[in-house]
Design a protein around this nucleic acid. Structure first.
Lengths: 210, 210
DNA sequence: AGATAGCTAGACTGGACAGTCTAGTATGAT
DNA sequence: ATCATACTAGACTGTCCAGTCTAGCTATCT
């Protein structure tokens, strides 16, 4: 609010908790019904706040939407799991692959991605934020681990970014594709576990030092 | 139009070419601006047809949309490329992978998929049609080829569906992800070619008969 | 205490748009 | 020729909605 020189605050300050209520309500509604499917009146009601208050915290529907998406992207930020270099590679990779699989298939993550795809043309910056915090972060973390294993002589990989990309997308491709399109009747949970294991297996058969 | 007994047509028949104009105009507009971004007036104008005519060919905006999507899915149907079993595997796989990469990254295919993702909740049947004609078809074609090579003793694969899935999604994952989200500044065309080759390589290192 | 600014409830404006209606014109089948 | 139907142009209805405005109420600062 204040810029240089700390302008003295006068009068009643804006309630941070109201802002939070608005974020929560709007995010939920946007994720469920999409941008066009939500009206500002609905947001106000859901947040238990007057419409005017919504507009006092956010300039427009557009900016409220952007703020919500940004918020969600942060919330989905990955904390690079502690990838213990001392554990057996297959065990670590299996863990990574399982973790990422779950992470990217939460209902919320899927809905978020759908929303962003729909706005990829009109608002590519939002998509970039998501990409950087999500898929790209994931890949970098994996690259770091792979490099470590190459250095220790466990793996033999010429091009680490390529290898990371191969494993990550191989493992999640179909599951993600189906989820994005809401295709029912996919492989069972057990089948998916088997598939993930098969991916780690394929990866190691090709990249484990002979 | 007519059901049992060939109802005799009376009066002026509906113009098939007008219907075609409407399809063309509506498909283009929907793909470019999304469902909510297009009005029926725009469709009529773009098609060079009166609004009433649009409504005489299609009951509602919803049904026009569905019809357009169905249409587009058919247009993107894959003709299972002639995969010559006599050619060297790496050559065939390389060709397949390149073909599919191009196919799925045409501007139109991406826009279509974005649109469907956005309507995955409200209209899952459309997404299913797309999935069956696109990704699923792709996978089945590849499975058929792989089975052939296993029978000839060139490849050694325990679980063919798994292997097909691995190759297909490994190869397209990142490229597709970026395209869907409209993320700029990805790898160059040349890098992508190299990546595709690396995928075929990884695949064969693991599955070629020793 | 008094000023300042946030909050509420609800009315209101202006524009967009799906879908209908009308009245007249065009076209094909019989 | 005549009838049934398609097509056109444009007006019209009803609804929804982003964003504004008002008037009174409330919380917090000096």
């Amino acid at each position: 609010m204040s810029s240089a020189g700390e302008t003295i605050a006068r009068g009643r300050p804006k309630s941070e908790s109201k802002k939070e209520q608005i974020y929560t309500a709007a995010s939920g509604l946007f994720l469920e019904h999409g941008y066009d499917g939500v009206s500002m009146d609905q947001v106000a009601i859901q947040a238990g706040v007057s419409k005017q208050t919504v507009y006092s915290h956010f300039d427009s529907k557009e900016s409220l939407f952007s703020a919500c998406i940004r918020n969600k992207c942060e919330a989905h930020q990955l904390t690079p799991a502690a990838l213990d270099p001392a554990l057996p590679v297959e065990q670590v990779l299996h863990r990574v692959v399982t973790l990422y699989d779950e992470l990217f298939h939460s209902d919320e993550a899927i809905r978020l991605k759908r929303l962003l795809c729909g706005h990829a043309d009109s608002n590519p910056r939002l998509a970039e934020i998501f990409y950087a915090a999500g898929p790209d972060m994931m890949k970098q973390t994996l690259e770091g681990y792979l490099q470590g294993q190459v250095d220790r002589g466990v793996l033999e990989i010429e091009d680490i970014p390529t290898a990371a990309r191969q494993l990550l997308y191989m493992m999640q491709g179909e599951h993600l594709n189906r989820a994005m399109l809401n295709i029912s009747g996919g492989p069972s949970e057990a089948d998916n576990k088997k598939y993930l294991a098969a991916c780690v297996d394929l990866f190691l058969r090709a990249y484990r030092r002979a």
